[in-house]
């Protein structure tokens, strides 16, 4: 079984304990989910899934997750690029901050985003705050009420209790995925290729599009997929910023929780299984991407 079994001690103990712990806490509960799912009748399952409220929840969850993943795809790439390639004051600080969405509890993220995007929040009332600050400054210069109160109202972004707000928190929770998968690839990337492209007369955009992007594409794509997978399962942060109106702004995890609170366990199970299957398919896709990327590399080499 093991090559150096006799020399390094502890295989039976550590492997045994690992398997025991995993079986008890992971395999057993997951097996329970499978068993419970098979106990659902097809009718029960279908009835749950085609319920308009549930369908709306799935549409919202998947839709918001796709948009959030796409935004992360663009901004995550920019952030990763800047953190690797553009040294600027405070780069290390911002680099460390990328991991904050992992470390910050989702409930905290939920309430702070919700408060930020309220009408009088820092971002929800951004225009008004700027006007007020400018007027305060102007008052010192003897020009009170230089700006009319609504002058910058287009800068107000009151997204709390809207579905836009859901997308915003999902961007937050998914932010590290794209950055942290693209960053190492960019780091390893040899700038010589780029210089070669430049010397051949390609401009910056062409170089990026034709030389750099194809190289980081697999990592980028799996980062986006991870952000998506994370977003569809997200619960804690979303429920604080969403208005949670059935059929309009309830995400699937919230639907599951509601069903559980109403002791409608079979319905909750049915939705949970669909959510899990989507996540696992995405995961499978990611492995596919990695497999494909490796093969492509091998083919090049």
């Amino acid at each position: 079984m093991a090559r150096v079994t006799r020399v390094i001690p502890g295989l039976p103990l550590t492997l045994g304990y690992t398997l025991f712990y995993l079986s008890l806490l992971v395999l057993l509960p997951l097996a329970g989910l499978v068993v419970k799912t098979t106990q659902l009748s097809w009718h029960e399952f279908a009835a749950t899934i085609v319920d308009p409220v549930v369908v709306a929840a799935f549409k919202l969850t998947v839709g918001a997750s796709v948009i959030a993943a796409a935004i992360n795809g663009v901004f995550g790439l920019i952030v990763a690029w800047v953190l690797v390639r553009e040294p600027f004051f405070g780069r290390r600080f911002f680099d460390a901050l990328i991991d904050l969405p992992f470390a910050l509890p989702t409930a905290v993220a939920g309430i702070t985003f919700s408060a930020l995007y309220l009408k009088d929040g820092w971002i929800g009332g951004l225009g008004d705050h700027i006007v007020a600050a400018a007027n305060l400054l102007a008052a010192y210069g003897g020009h009170p009420d230089l700006f009319s109160p609504g002058a910058l109202s287009w800068l107000d972004l009151p997204f709390s209790n809207t579905n836009t707000g859901i997308v915003i928190v999902l961007v937050f929770v998914g932010l590290p995925f794209v950055v942290r998968t693209v960053q190492p690839v960019l780091q390893e990337w040899d700038a010589e290729f780029e210089q070669a492209a430049h010397s051949l007369g390609a401009n910056g955009w062409t170089t990026f599009r034709r030389v750099i992007f194809p190289e980081i594409f697999p990592a980028w794509l799996s980062g986006v997929a991870l952000a998506f997978a994370r977003a569809i399962g997200e619960y804690g942060s979303v429920i604080f910023i969403a208005s949670n109106i059935p059929g309009k702004s309830q995400i699937v995890p919230l639907q599951i929780v509601i069903k559980l609170d109403e002791f409608q366990t079979p319905q909750a199970t049915a939705m949970g299984v669909v959510l899990l299957v989507i996540a696992l398919l995405v995961l499978l896709g990611i492995n596919g991407i990695e497999f494909w990327a490796r093969h492509r590399q091998l083919a090049v080499a």
Binding site: L22, L28, P29, G32, L33, I232, L275
Partner: peptide, 27 residues
């Protein structure tokens, strides 16, 4: 891969599976 599994599972489902095991009508 197994150790990684919880990362890809929604926290709500993580709660749900324990309800399905130990809750009323659970296994």
């Amino acid at each position: 891969t197994l150790i990684d599994l919880p990362f890809s599972i929604s926290p709500v489902i993580a709660g749900l599976i324990f309800v399905l095991l130990f809750g009323r009508g659970g296994i």
